[in-house]
Simulated scan of single mutants.
Amino acid sequence: MPEHPVVVVTGASSGIGRASALAFAAQGATLVLAARGGSALRAAAAECRAAGARHVEPVVTDVSDRDAVDGLVDGARRRWGRVDVCVHAAAVMAYGRVDEVPPEVFDRVVTTNLLGTANVARACLAQFRRQRSGTLVVVGSLLGRVTTPRMGAYVTSKWGVRGLARILSQEVRDLGDVHVCIVEPAGTDTPIYRQAANYTGRYGRPPVPVDSPERVARSVLRAARHPRRHSRLLGPTSPFIVAGFTLLPGVYDALVGPLVAVGALARERVAPHDGTVFAPRPEGDATHGLWGRHWLRAVAAAGAAGAAGAGAALVRRR
């Protein structure tokens, strides 16, 4: 990665995308920022200028629109001569059982997250092949490796994203300086949980332990600088969760439902709504969500109690 790279960031108006844009801005990068919400995108651009970016260009873009994504990357190339890094962080989420979530919401989540990733990858890799260098960093999720109930659309999309990123990394092996990496965070303090479509009756929240978006952004920056390592799974408990899912599927399946009810859904009630799945809500966009460390002890205690109760129930059934 050059000292002052040209970086395209999707999902730059909020959460991990916004934090990643700010991390590159602090390194003096030239930034092309993309998101659906114009006002929040312009606010993120102003923050990046203040943080030290050399140049910042906000471009309203929906990653599910293939022509718009092509125009985003081609516009960056025409203006700055090259694209060194693309960070793809755009995503939407929906809570609810598969039979509860309206089919059009389910389909849109998968379209935005999975097909949107394919659109970004096609556009960026075409440019990287022409210039014989460049790195695509895809923001995946721990939920691309394990499953949880009531998040079927999001989990389906992220499993697809992880598989696609692996395929892409294989397909660029003939290009020595072109790379595809995936960063896979667990629960992160971003607005996506409140902005998600929801059909459970309770707001979603990130399960503990909760990372900051800045920590995830530092991993994104490291991936861009040292892209030889394809996958970066974040979170101190994530390897244990993946191991439980893989090695003890019966135990995992017995525990995951109660743990989701306790640790991934807030007590606050909410009427069914489609969140940001079809349109942005710029007023809710920010780098951080509502999930600071002040609430972690209570949730951790509740999670431990839920796990103990589920474990006892499992033993009784056996």
Rank of each mutant, 00 (worst) to 15 (best):
A23T: 08
G38A: 14
G303V: 13
G28W: 08
V120F: 05
A261C: 01
L72F: 06
V172C: 04
R297C: 03
G257D: 14
R36S: 11
V138T: 14
A304L: 15
V315H: 05
G187V: 06
D67F: 07
L114K: 07
E57C: 13
A217G: 04
V105R: 05
V137R: 04
R317W: 11
A305T: 11
V315C: 01
A34K: 07
Y199M: 06
W295I: 11
P249L: 03
W159N: 04
A261M: 08
W291A: 11
P258V: 04
R130Y: 06
E268V: 05
P209K: 11
Y199E: 08
E283D: 15
D74W: 01
D67Y: 07
V180E: 10
V98H: 07
G275M: 09
G160W: 09
A266T: 11
V120I: 08
P272G: 07
P239F: 11
A301S: 12
Y203H: 13
V178E: 10
R130G: 08
W159C: 05
T61V: 13
T61E: 02
Q131Y: 10
L233I: 13
L22T: 04
A298K: 12
R194F: 01
G204Q: 10
E283A: 15
A313K: 08
P209L: 12
I16H: 07
G284A: 08
V220L: 10
R173Q: 15
